[in-house]
Amino acid sequence: MLTLVIPIAFALLGAAVALSVWRLLLGPSAPDRILALDTLYVNTIALLVLLGIHLGSALYFEAALLIAMMGFVGTVALCKYLLRGDIIE
């Protein structure tokens, strides 16, 4: 059952990543692109966790945790930049 489901899930997540890259390229405004980046990193976390299950290795978890933290900081920094034109006051 799992051997059947995991490739399907990989395909769905890959499609999700492709869709958010499409929005990232298309724009049309800056917040749209930031939102696309935000979605992209969340999708990447799901993809990494799935890869961990597929390979049976718990190592990928640390990468997922790091991406979650860095992605959040990146989104907040970009939004702050849009709001004030400056990140650190």
Partner: peptide, 23 residues
């Protein structure tokens, strides 16, 4: 096995729908 498959499929589906909404 079934529980895992269900969770993985639901997760992948919702992630996909979220990105679909983005487009």
């Amino acid at each position: 096995d079934y529980l895992l498959s269900f969770l993985i499929l639901t997760g992948a589906l919702f992630t996909f729908i979220g990105s679909l909404g983005l487009v």
